[in-house]
């Protein structure tokens, strides 16, 4: 009988619930460090970018909005891999914060946070964003797989978005500042990571038939 079989198979387990917040924070920190180190290794940051964070409060607010949106997306992404842990409200808040952050760049076409300039332009910023976003995304999808995602494709896409937007946000400091360039060459490749992350599940889905 199934119940007997499952009871016989019982092994003590540690609940991941209380550790999920710490795990998310660890993933975010490691991913941010990885992105910062790799970006610095590939090329220099935009000259004066750090000073601009202090001297231009709106630029700082734009960056902080990005950090907040990514942190909430990561939280939602990992919670979506636990049955019943993700509410529609939390999903709506994550979507709202992300859109609010991106809206800054749209507003930037009329009133930019910084004077648009080609200073610090990296030749392959779109490729860097894409490539740097993938390893954190794959690590996160692997961790999600260890939880119990009821909708694995959605969970992978959510965490992929957080992972892809992380280097996209860092390019704000590392690459040139111009709203059009940011949306096209930083944000778009970041969003592409969200589309690619669910592909990591394909081998497993094929194995299950």
């Amino acid at each position: 009988m199934l119940i007997d079989r499952l009871a016989d198979d019982l092994q003590p387990v540690r609940s991941v619930g209380p550790r999920l917040g710490r795990g998310t924070l660890l993933w975010l920190t490691l991913s941010a460090v990885y992105v910062a180190v790799m970006t610095a290794l590939i090329g220099p940051l935009r000259p004066g970018a750090m000073e601009q964070l202090v001297t231009h409060p709106r630029f700082l607010a734009e960056c902080l909005a990005g950090v907040l949106a990514i942190a909430v997306l990561a939280r939602v992404g990992f919670r979506s891999a636990i049955p019943g842990a993700l509410s529609r409200r939390a999903l709506a808040i994550a979507a709202g914060l992300t859109l609010l952050w991106l809206l800054n760049y749209v507003v930037g076409f009329v009133s930019p946070a910084l004077e648009p300039s080609m200073l610090g332009k990296r030749p392959h910023c779109y490729l860097e964003t894409l490539v740097l976003g993938l390893p954190p995304a794959l690590a996160a999808v692997y961790w999600q797989h260890k939880l119990f995602p009821l909708r694995p494709l959605l969970s992978a896409a959510l965490i992929g978005l957080a992972a892809g937007l992380l280097p996209a946000l860092y390019m704000q400091i590392a690459c040139m500042y111009a709203p059009g360039h940011i949306l096209m060459w930083h944000i778009l490749p970041g969003v592409l990571v969200a589309c690619l992350a669910p592909l990591a599940l394909v081998p497993g889905l094929l194995r299950r038939g």
Partner: peptide, 23 residues
């Protein structure tokens, strides 16, 4: 029942059981 068995490590004892189960 099989899913409950496989997902038992994701249940957070500080939270209600019902939302977890019915999801």
């Amino acid at each position: 029942l099989i899913a409950v068995h496989e997902a038992r490590h994701t249940y957070d004892p500080r939270k209600q059981f019902r939302p977890w189960l019915f999801a």
